[in-house]
Amino acid sequence: MPDIFHLGRDTSPKDGREKVRAAQEGREALTPWLGWVCGPAAWALHQGIGYAMVPWLCDLGTRWPYHLLTVVSTGLCMVGAWAALHALRRSGRVRSERSEGRLRMMALVGLMLCAAALTGIAIEYGASFWLSVCAGIDR
């Protein structure tokens, strides 16, 4: 199997116990990345779809799809933050031959990325309340 999903697990054959441990390490390797992926993805989702849906909201005369979008993307952000936090807590308990600093750094960056994305979503969401969805669309 290529290294992509395991991101650091070595690919040599293993016995049963080794396999279990390797699977755990695979998850260990994956969770801190969730913050890196979920934060930016949530923000991109909120911004991209939110931007595209404005004319439609104006026709529709309601904001509820937009609220829903905000809830979903905030949730996605939270998932990333939770995974990163989890990895951060665990980074103290990593076996010493694996780089503990590496896991810690990745988790920390993931967590902060999620925080930044959440801030972005909050500011975008908050600022748009001053505006009617139809402002600037009067043809």
Partner: peptide, 21 residues
């Protein structure tokens, strides 16, 4: 270019966001 104001407001927030990093 005459885009809806609410759409532009997203990008206003995002553009200013670059100040944090």
């Amino acid at each position: 270019t005459g885009l809806p104001l609410m759409g532009r407001s997203f990008f206003m927030a995002a553009s200013a966001m670059i100040a944090i990093p």
